[in-house]
Design a protein around this nucleic acid. Structure first.
Lengths: 210, 210
DNA sequence: GTCTATAGAAGGATAGAC
DNA sequence: GTCTATCCTTCTATAGAC
């Protein structure tokens, strides 16, 4: 690297990538049109192929990046030196705030994964879940005991936490339809959820106390 | 109706409909191909158009039916004369069992709704949520008071229940990837979830007790 | 009602000039 | 690197025979 170009210096590639992200998030892999992406990026179709060769490669680049960003949001939870309760509060606040800024992301990622599970495998290949798992158990040994949490129930609890956080965004389309009917405001509901979710989960755990 | 034909007598239409349901569930509206549907139904493309005119109409017919079936699964909960606790247990058992039999349905419905919210509006038009809402509050007045449940928190609780039930199926693709890594079996996890979910929610409610 | 054949449009990808 | 023009495949949809 003798030149002084940084990786972010390729403005056209960035514009394409950003446009592609928006179009793919909205329409999905199958519904997205290269023409749309080109228009949104302010260039022509040929240039898309010059930079990314095929639609599939362009999609893959976008998907790896956004799905990765989303998974990374879970990481701090496992690292920080907090009590279980603090971690739960921290997680909901962080994660829901992130999705407020990227409301289409959850539905997009969930859908494309079901459509093509191979893509997520590529992403998860480098994550050692077993290690994280062991670490968690070790870190919170006493609390797991206090709350009467068996190893078997850990996947249940963790997926429940993820569910409570992600579902409102994944189901945004229906919920907004129903909420309208009930006079409930979606944004206010989400804002309120950061705290409700933590209280709910912590309450459920406390009720297991031996 | 003087003839003795029943509505279900149109075998070809049924075959098409069933094939379409399977292909749309797997590939989504955009990814589905009329040729695939024709092949799976054992007929040719022209006949699809003879029966349903366009791909969009065929999709709409399928979507209205399967999404309707899914929503209907929620209905018994509101009708039955059970305590809140019993309703929660009943719901998780019924709903998760239904999804075990139709594992692709949640992801399919959620995705297509986000892609085209107008479709769900058409479906929800005839459901009076306000009325159901009032009925619920009236039926469980005492319990809401006992568990310290404000009106404001009802949407939070109801979406939380839906989330816990639906999410594992909507996120099946990722979860199976992670579970594999951890030596957890997805089907066993789901079976276990029917009871775990009910205990978890009831526990959370009890912890709110005044 | 069901088929074969084909029209007609759309979309991904490439050639070649600048 | 970027553009215009165009190829080629794929897909929805229809015409018309039986």
């Amino acid at each position: 690297m003798v030149n002084n170009m940084t990786e972010n210096d390729n403005q056209t590639e960035d514009k394409i990538f950003e446009a592609a992200t928006r179009v793919f998030e909205e329409k999905g892999m199958d519904g997205a049109r290269m023409q749309d992406i080109a228009n949104k990026a302010g260039i022509n179709k040929a240039l898309l192929h010059y930079y990314f060769r095929t639609k599939d490669r362009l999609f893959d680049a976008v998907f790896q990046k956004v799905a990765g960003r989303m998974l990374m949001k879970f990481a701090p939870v496992f690292e920080k030196d907090l009590t279980l309760e603090e971690k739960i509060r921290f997680f909901f606040r962080q994660h829901i705030t992130f999705m407020q800024e990227n409301p289409r992301l959850p539905a997009f990622v969930l859908n494309e994964i079901n459509r093509n599970p191979a893509r997520i495998k590529k992403l998860l290949k480098n994550v050692d879940f077993k290690k994280i798992w062991m670490m968690l158990i070790e870190q919170h040994k006493d609390e797991l005991d206090k709350y009467n949490i068996t190893e078997e129930s850990i996947p249940q609890i963790m997926t429940t936490i993820a569910a409570i956080s992600v579902f409102p965004f994944a189901a945004k389309g229906i919920l907004e339809g129903i909420f309208e009917n009930l006079g409930v405001n979606f944004d206010a509901y989400i804002e309120q959820r950061k705290e409700f979710a933590a209280d709910f989960v912590i309450g459920a755990l406390k009720s297991r106390k031996k």
